[in-house]
């Protein structure tokens, strides 16, 4: 049956929204509201919280920054002083105490008054400073009384057993040439030329970390 509504439009009853449209609209509204709710949560919730946390952490940082700066100042001052201390240590490491070395040589030569083993004396002593990879060089031309060449060997052995010898890199080989001086009693003496080259400063026993006693170096000769 065809139904025709003859009422003017303005007098007609409005048509009901269809259920489909209503449901769709409702769903759309819910979705949109949810979406905006989510946005509000993200913005005011998460982001807001993060901002507050950042503010708190910044306050905390501000409170420790001053102490950290104090630490930096102390660190800098310590480094300045340590630089000087290290310089002193560097110089000390490179310094050989010649009074100690010569005192030990004197003990070896005097040998507690025992002249049977060797009786030595010297023309002089000269020390040249370190150069290149070697340490200082010491030269002592001298004599051993008598014509028995083994006394020269005994003297060299005693030098090798002296404490300072652990810092010696090379020593001249033992040997001697007979000289006769009629104005002396006994007239015979064996002349020899004692030469020693010390190790570089970094290898000296006092500069080693263990500072322990090491076996004396074997004479390598020249």
């Amino acid at each position: 049956m065809i139904r025709i509504n003859l009422l003017p439009e303005e007098f007609r009853r409005s048509e009901r929204t269809s259920f489909k449209l209503f449901a769709a609209t409702l769903a759309a509204v819910v979705l949109v509201c949810s979406a905006f709710g989510w946005f509000a949560y993200a913005y005011f919730g998460e982001y807001g919280e993060a901002r507050q946390e950042l503010a708190r952490e910044k306050d905390k940082l501000a409170s420790v920054t001053e102490r950290a700066a104090y630490h930096d100042q102390l660190e800098k001052e310590k480094k300045d002083y340590e630089a000087r201390q290290q310089t002193i240590k560097d110089i000390a490491m490179s310094r050989m105490l010649w009074s100690e070395v010569l005192d030990q040589v004197l003990d070896v030569v005097n040998n507690d008054g025992n002249t049977e083993r060797h009786l030595a004396w010297f023309q002089g002593v000269s020390v040249r400073e370190a150069a290149g990879n070697s340490g200082p060089q010491l030269a002592m031309p001298g004599w051993v009384q008598g014509a028995n060449i083994s006394k020269v060997a005994d003297f060299h052995d005693d030098i090798e057993n002296a404490p300072f010898f652990q810092d010696v890199k090379e020593m001249s080989f033992p040997g001697g040439r007979l000289e006769v001086d009629g104005q002396r009693q006994p007239p015979e003496a064996l002349r020899f030329d004692l030469r020693m080259t010390f190790k570089p400063a970094k290898d000296w026993s006092k500069n080693r970390p263990d500072k322990g006693a090491k076996p004396a170096a074997k004479p390598a000769g020249k």
């Binding site: 769903a27 946005f39 993200a42 982001y47 993060a50």
Partner: peptide, 21 residues
């Protein structure tokens, strides 16, 4: 409209999350 508005909201969420991150 719903899609548009949800999209806007979604963009807003993404932006807010980015800020939060």
């Amino acid at each position: 409209s719903a899609v548009l508005l949800c999209g806007l909201a979604g963009a807003g969420v993404w932006w807010a999350k980015d800020l939060a991150q």
